[in-house]
Nucleic acid binder design. Structure first.
Lengths: 155, 155
DNA sequence: AAATACAGGACCAATATGGTTCTGTATAGA
DNA sequence: TCTATACAGAACCATATTGGTCCTGTATTT
């Protein structure tokens, strides 16, 4: 629990793919095939990421999606925020201060805020650039980046 | 998003109440009244916390719930784990290693694991004891701890 | 024995999520 | 200019999860 939605999960995977070749455009079809995420989901997510300014899109025959910023300038927090909205452990935290009538006497709100900020900071510390590198404990693979299908776990 | 369930949210609040007077027993009715969480929810959550070993229960007329461990020995991670199951950003992370067939070539699994561990560590860093103290930014109140009703924000 | 209080379920309505589909518009190239 | 490609936007649906209730049973105190 404390789960990410699949949209956010997929989104992280998709952007990690795109970030491997920044500046290059990728079609939804291609990204779906590579990731093995269902195509309709992929198109939906790519549209959301475009609207949020993380991707740029080009229509037409040679169209596709490409990164709108450098991979160093996109964090996991950005991606999750784009696909699930503000990072907030509870509705109380998401709301504007003063939004909840019990707020002034709520004994845990402050602590939740502290936790929430720490989690957000963690998510802001991971960039797309870092996600193109192998993580600690990752299996070491020889990948032909031009042709390989790198399936993403979607369990 | 990245929301806690209300059960976990409530659970944190309820335990924060109980931890103010460790060693003392509190009935479900009393905790519901103090927190203004709906009674049926409160009873359900207290049962779960008892089964998980965070609370001890006594039946009968003088019954109620009390902390099973010292407030220093209970973390936010423990509470969330008890009420929502293992802390895992994705199903992939929750499963046993080797559980997902795409795992060996999944390029983001390692990074998710790193993120997940960091978040869990954050949640493990906050104890019930610390939650009985005011948090940074909390309003300073004069509370008569014997009689006051300290409503918890449940928005 | 009676009243209190927890234990353990089953149960239900509402919401959110995952996923699909359809119509429309822009672009490249024949 | 016509056609195929590919994104834009939105409506839509089935299902799972969540929040919440309720009922029956057991233990304990007085």
């Amino acid at each position: 629990m404390l789960r990410l939605t699949k949209q956010a999960d997929y989104g992280l995977g998709l952007l990690a793919f795109v970030a491997r070749k920044p500046g290059q455009t990728h079609t939804a079809r291609e990204l779906s095939a590579r990731s093995s995420y269902p195509l309709p989901m992929v198109t939906k997510i790519l549209k959301l990421l475009t609207r949020s300014g993380l991707l740029e899109s080009r229509r037409g025959v040679k169209g596709g999606y490409s990164l709108a910023r450098s991979p160093e300038a996109v964090t996991a927090a950005d991606i999750i925020h784009a696909l699930e909205g503000p990072i907030a452990l509870t509705g109380c935290i998401a709301g504007e201060p003063g939004d909840c009538d019990k707020e002034p006497i709520c004994p845990i709100q402050g602590h939740l805020r502290v936790l929430n900020d720490a989690i957000r900071a963690t998510l802001q510390g991971v960039t797309l650039a870092s996600m193109t590198l192998p993580a600690v404990g990752d299996p070491v693979l020889q990948i032909d980046s031009a042709t390989s299908t790198q399936s993403v776990c979607n369990k």
